[in-house]
Write a protein that binds this DNA or RNA. Structure first.
Length: 893
DNA sequence: GCGGACTGCTTACCT
DNA sequence: ACAGGTAAGCAGTCCGCG
């Protein structure tokens, strides 16, 4: 039943009504209005003031592309429908004559007509004539399980042809591109940018300020070729443009369930929604509560500006929430795709709401809004690239509590009892906090998260909804697709790239990997004073730029390019024509390194502009960091293993050259990893010579990235510690830094860090060593005497990487603990954090919640303490066993 | 039956 | 659904051991 309902639901399209005039900012009055016929869709007037292109979709009712425009002054969304007659299509190498024989195609209800178009085929490197099969609606091209145009052609043509062509030679291109993306590319639209509607047409709005900046950018990039400059300007025009304020509401719902540990199924929506909180950028702070039998009022105080509203029917409560969703241009949730919005929509259906009364468009994996733009922050913060490169790994767990704590210093309210036992005010306070955190996650640093999504939408040519939900490989793919269409190039199919360019030839060090990666230099153990770390800024993107790498240029067809070899490989690269990737990635890299990065440090600029530039360079960093990896990712549409392999090979070659040169210059190299070298006490001249040589010989820059007062290396790679001149400590890879270790051990490690920060000269080490020994001894003695504050201090916190059933090969300790939890009725899924302690009895682990002090296996913790500190101690000339006072004999025993 | 040497699995990290 | 390289701990296997 539920499944059936869902199918019907997804087919529903909002009813078109007559054109409407611009409305004032939504106020609280409009939110409480009920049952009034809605002005929907909010059609853009004939002339619309400058508005941001925030979203795009295909409107099934009108059969047109629909652009959602956000007008920041009124805070309203306006819909603009295509007026150019653009239609969905795909391309094929069969001629119109041949295609006409396929009756299943020509009589297909979605088929419209054929066109002959000329395109440049980047794989054969020549112009080709292809047939454009134009359809009436996007699903006819592809997207249905059976009977799509893209499948019919290779299936049916061999049967109808009198001179059969090998099935694998029949090609269909560009049939898997989403229709609205295709529309964006063909019309060369720029999501995230400002547009006007003039006499019904969509017109880009140019901004003088941004144009002026583009002029001065030209001055900076004197060394760029005309072609490169064109790309740099193209990007800069997108990025310079400022962002609006985002009028928005955060929402969070609470559902009553009879079994408190179980998450209610949003597809069934069987239980009542008892509380909804709304937190708006316009100051609206509201908690909507469902009146229920036997619930206490409670005495909790909410902030004075929060209003509580009680509803005697759930239906009315839902209507009030829907009013907000019909009115705000942006809505924010934390996991709203899978829960809050999905639950609301299905619950409303259960109550018999008409479909056009529900503001939510329920999809298979997402929930979008019919009017505005829904950003599910869970999906955004879950994105690994965002987590690591935009927020420097500051949150580890993608939960509202952990992300909130890490980014805005605000945590969820801890509940002692189940939801059903809470009083109204307890429930309200709890729920409101969630909405508040959700909102504030988009509000800190002047709406950084909203702006980041906007900037990424610009770079990737994607709607804000999509860019906030999809990974970096989609962002990169889409701007590459856009560029193909701009240049009238056929977008190749992955199998064709693979067939022409082949696979990899080098052997990876790690079993199961496809090709050889980076070099890591064996470190020189010990303490070293005055260490300069030099690195290639954005090494891989630089290589892609300088070596002209891309799927077109690698292993190109020209015989005369065959001697332009990639070091360490038999691959060669084109000398005649720049690859798109080389230009696109190279220009982004140059803009970041030569323009945006320096601007963030330019004290003559106003603070707001500097932070805007900082945001842009951060967005570029996220993209650049992935720009090489995607070529080696089978899931990337332009997957080209030799490009990835060549990039890594050149990186190894470059680092090796630098190592040799440093040696020649008489500099001692302590360590190096991928793109960096650690130099012991180098002179200014030596550094300059090295940088100059690199610039000259490798055509890449080599900068001093950081200088350590001193650094500590063990013999382990990717494991060291550096102390900056200002006393801050840089810890890399050491166990003491890892987030899964018990806080008890982590605290001792942090104490050691603090003590090391105070060391200024080699002589200072003598006292520091004594203090560090004392720190370790203390920690050891407290363990031996079983003195810890509570068991959480001893807990290991390890992420469950898979669903429990999928650990079939081995059962790691955290999985053992998880299984015990499951037996105790706790629901667990992949991604959950498991906290466990080590105990004496089998199976030697226990979930922290279930363990008691006296069963702790102290010796296991001492062993862990030992190995954690060993990484630093051997460099300092200290010995763990000696520190804790074991005699040689005792150690032997 | 048990322990040591070994491989493989898993997580968390580095670039 | 960006890549490969490294460290660490533990699980599991094989083999010798009269």
């Amino acid at each position: 039943m539920a499944q059936k309902r869902l199918e019907d639901f997804s087919k529903v399209e909002a009813k078109l009504t007559k054109e409407t005039e611009a409305k004032a900012l939504p106020s609280t009055e409009t939110i409480t209005k009920e049952k009034k016929e809605r002005d929907f869709p909010p059609l853009a007037p004939e002339n619309l003031p400058p508005s941001y292109f925030v979203s795009a979709t295909y409107d099934g009712k009108t059969g047109k592309a629909l652009i959602k425009l956000y007008e920041p002054n009124s805070g309203k969304i306006y819909f603009w429908y295509d007026n150019t007659g653009h239609k969905p299509y795909c391309l094929t190498n069969l001629s119109q004559y041949e295609l006409e024989k396929i009756t299943r195609l020509t009589q297909h209800e979605g088929f419209d007509h054929f066109e002959i178009v000329e395109k440049f085929d980047p794989l054969s490197e020549r112009n080709v004539k292809v047939t454009k099969i134009v359809a009436k609606d996007p699903l006819a091209v592809g997207g249905r399980p059976t009977g799509c145009i893209r499948d019919i052609i290779p299936e049916d043509f061999p049967k109808v042809s009198e001179t059969p062509i090998e099935p694998e030679k029949i090609k269909v291109w560009e049939s898997k591109i989403k229709y609205y993306q295709s529309y964006i590319y063909d019309r060369n639209l720029q999501p995230g940018m400002l547009y006007e509607v003039k006499n019904g047409d969509l017109i880009p709005k140019s901004l003088e300020e941004a144009e002026r900046m583009v002029q001065s950018i030209r001055e900076i990039f004197k060394e760029a070729t005309d072609e490169e400059l064109q790309y740099i300007e193209q990007w800069a025009r997108l990025l310079e443009y400022s962002a609006p304020k985002f009028h928005r509401v955060a929402l969070d719902i609470e559902v009553y369930t009879p079994v408190p540990t179980r998450m209610p199924d949003p597809r069934e929506a069987a239980y009542p929604i008892v509380c909804v909180s709304l937190y708006g950028s316009d100051g609206q702070k509201k908690v909507l509560l469902l009146k229920r039998e036997g619930v206490r009022e409670g005495t909790e105080r909410l902030p004075a500006d929060v209003s509580l509203e009680y509803f005697d029917s759930e239906e009315k409560l839902i209507r009030a929430v829907f009013d907000a969703l019909w009115n705000y241009p942006f809505a924010l949730t934390f996991n709203g795709d899978d829960f809050d919005l999905r639950y609301l929509a299905h619950r409303a259906l259960n109550f018999g709401f008409k479909r056009n009364e529900i503001p939510i468009e329920v999809g298979r994996r997402v929930c979008l809004l019919k009017y505005g733009v829904h950003i599910d922050l869970y999906k955004f913060f879950f994105n690994r690239s965002i987590q690591i490169y935009a927020f420097n790994n500051r949150y580890r767990d993608v939960t509202l509590d952990d992300v909130g704590k890490a980014l805005i210093g605000m945590e969820k309210i801890k509940l002692e009892k189940s939801l059903g036992e809470l009083s109204y005010t307890e429930l309200a306070k709890y729920c409101f906090r969630d909405a508040e955190i959700t909102f504030k996650l988009t509000n800190f640093e002047d709406e950084l998260v909203m702006k980041l999504i906007l900037v990424l939408a610009r770079i990737s040519s994607m709607p804000m909804e999509d860019v906030s939900r999809q990974g970096v490989s989609r962002w990169i793919r889409n701007f590459m697709h856009h560029e193909h269409r701009r240049k009238n190039m056929l977008i190749p199919n992955m199998e064709d790239i693979l067939a022409v360019k082949g696979k990899t030839v080098t052997k990876a060090i790690i079993k199961g990997k496809k090709y050889k990666g980076a070099i890591v230099v064996e470190p020189t153990p010990g303490v070293h004073f005055n260490v300069a770390v030099m690195d290639f800024p954005s090494l891989y993107p630089s290589i892609i730029k300088v070596w002209n790498l891309g799927y077109q240029s690698i292993l190109c067809q020209h015989p005369e390019c065959r001697n332009n070899l990639i070091p360490d490989t038999p691959h060669w690269v084109c000398t005649k024509k720049r690859a798109l990737e080389s230009l696109l990635i190279g220009s982004l890299r140059d803009l970041r390194v030569q323009w945006y990065k320096p601007k963030t440090k330019d004290k003559t600029l106003p603070v707001e502009l500097r932070s805007w530039y900082n945001l842009i360079q951060g967005a570029l960093k996220v993209i650049l960091n992935a720009s090489y990896g995607v070529f080696g990712a089978e899931t990337f549409d332009l997957y080209c293993p030799p490009v990835a392999e060549a990039t890594a090979a050149i990186a190894r070659h470059s680092l090796t050259q630098i190592l040799n040169k440093a040696e020649q210059l008489g500099i001692q190299v302590l360590y190096g990893d991928t793109d960096s070298i650690f130099l012991k006490n180098p002179s200014k001249e030596q550094i300059e010579k090295l940088a100059h040589w690199t610039e000259h010989e490798l055509k890449m820059s080599l900068d001093v990235d950081k200088v350590y007062r001193y650094s500590v290396f063990s013999s382990r790679k990717k494991n060291y510690l550096g102390v900056f001149e200002d006393g801050s400590v840089d810890v890399k890879g050491l166990t003491g830094k890892k987030k899964h270790i018990p806080p008890f051990i982590k605290k001792a490690f942090d104490q050691m860090k603090e003590r090391l920060a105070m060391v200024k000269t080699p002589a200072d080490f003598e006292n520091a060593k004594k203090d560090i020994s004392q720190i370790i001894r203390d920690c050891y003695m407290r363990l031996k005497r079983r003195e810890w504050e509570n068991l959480n201090d001893l807990a290991f916190n390890v992420v469950l990487g898979e669903e429990l059933e999928r650990y079939t090969k081995t059962t790691p300790q955290h999985v053992k603990a998880a299984k015990i939890l499951k037996e105790n009725g706790v629901e667990l899924k992949a991604g959950d954090l498991i906290s466990f302690v080590k105990v004496v009895k089998e199976p030697h682990v226990k979930p922290v919640e279930l363990a008691t002090n006296n069963e702790i296996d102290v010796d296991k913790y001492i062993a862990y303490l030992h190995s954690t500190f060993d990484q630093v101690l051997d460099a300092l000339g200290l010995d763990f066993d000696e520190i804790i006072g074991l005699t040689k004999l005792e150690r032997f025993m």
